[in-house]
Simulated scan of single mutants.
Amino acid sequence: MALSKLTIITIFIFQALIFSAQSASNNSNLFREYIGAEFKNVKFSDLPIHSGVEFHFILSFAIDYTTSSSSASPTNGEFNIFWDTDNLTPSQVSAIKTKHPNVKVALSLGGDSVGNGYAYFNPSSINSWLSNAVSSLTTIIQDYNLDGIDIDYEHFKTDPNTFAECIGKLILTLKKNGAISFASIAPYDDDQVQSHYMALWRKYGHVIDYVNFQFYAYDKGTSVSQFMDYFAKQSSNYNGGKVLPSFISDESGGLGPNNGFFAACSKLKNEGNLHGIFVWCADDSKGLGFKYEKQSQSLLAI
């Protein structure tokens, strides 16, 4: 018996609704922001926090280097705090999490520089680095009541496999011990950086919750169409990962908030591919009144 036109239309609408629901289910209301690296006296309480998003502060940075300003040197996994501890204290972590139940706080490892030079990932051996890292980071995480870690090493004095084993086992151990509930990585489009992070992803992608891809490391003046191509490429590189679009507050690179970033995010949301948004960084956004943070969270909360 031939199906009636009404039946066909009903089936089509039902399928469209299922597809729409499946696409929407891949979107997220996650907003993440790095804070404390530039010592501009920014506090957690300075930022607008929308009740309709999951909000992650990412303290920047903890680095396995000595804290000597003149001659910082690697410590093989013994992490020290390099963020603005005058304004971002354990008591302030507790206060912001108490005031806003939708807030979690993480710390980022590595970063671009330390003292007057690059912050290199430079372990003596996998096992010794891992033992020191688990011990020192667990202490910091417990002292600050933190929820997760982010991996932002950008310079390396070791091979990709060693990086993958050190970082992958670190995340596994901290999760197994109950020290953290989530972990992210923060690569960008550079051959050496990608070789290390993609090796990590291939072996340990299953324990990495978010990919904070630094899309702002692409050239300033990136167009929306270019951004969408970059996003598709990195989603393929980190296949199965929650790749987050990003911008830099001062708009010095990539697709800026005033040049189409939010249009690109709306496109991703319509496709069911908006896994969240992250920003570098609160220190610079303070002088702008956090206007782009407000806009980002409004988009995510819809």
Rank of each mutant, 00 (worst) to 15 (best):
S124P: 02
S135N: 12
D189K: 08
D147I: 09
A186K: 01
D150R: 05
N145R: 00
D219V: 10
V114C: 04
N122L: 14
G110L: 02
A164I: 07
Y210H: 06
I185H: 05
Y210V: 00
Q226S: 14
T222Y: 03
L244S: 01
A164E: 03
D147P: 11
M228P: 02
V134H: 12
V207K: 02
V224C: 14
D143W: 08
A186T: 06
D143S: 12
K242F: 04
H155I: 01
P123N: 12
S225A: 15
L146V: 10
A164Y: 06
P187M: 01
Q142V: 09
Y153L: 07
L174K: 06
P187W: 02
F247L: 08
F121S: 04
V134G: 12
S113K: 06
N177K: 13
Y118W: 10
I140H: 15
I208N: 03
A133N: 04
D229I: 09
N177F: 08
P123W: 08
D189F: 13
L200Y: 13
L137Q: 01
G115L: 11
A199W: 05
N237A: 15
F163E: 03
S246F: 02
T139G: 06
K220F: 07
S223K: 08
L174M: 12
V224E: 14
A199E: 15
N122H: 15
T222P: 00
Y210D: 05
D219T: 10
K176D: 15
S184L: 02
D190I: 06
Y118E: 12
L109G: 09
G241W: 00
V193K: 01
I208A: 01
K176A: 15
P187H: 00
W129Y: 15
N145V: 05
S113A: 11
L172H: 11
I185Y: 06
S128Y: 05
P123K: 08
Y188V: 07
Y118Q: 10
G115W: 00
V114A: 05
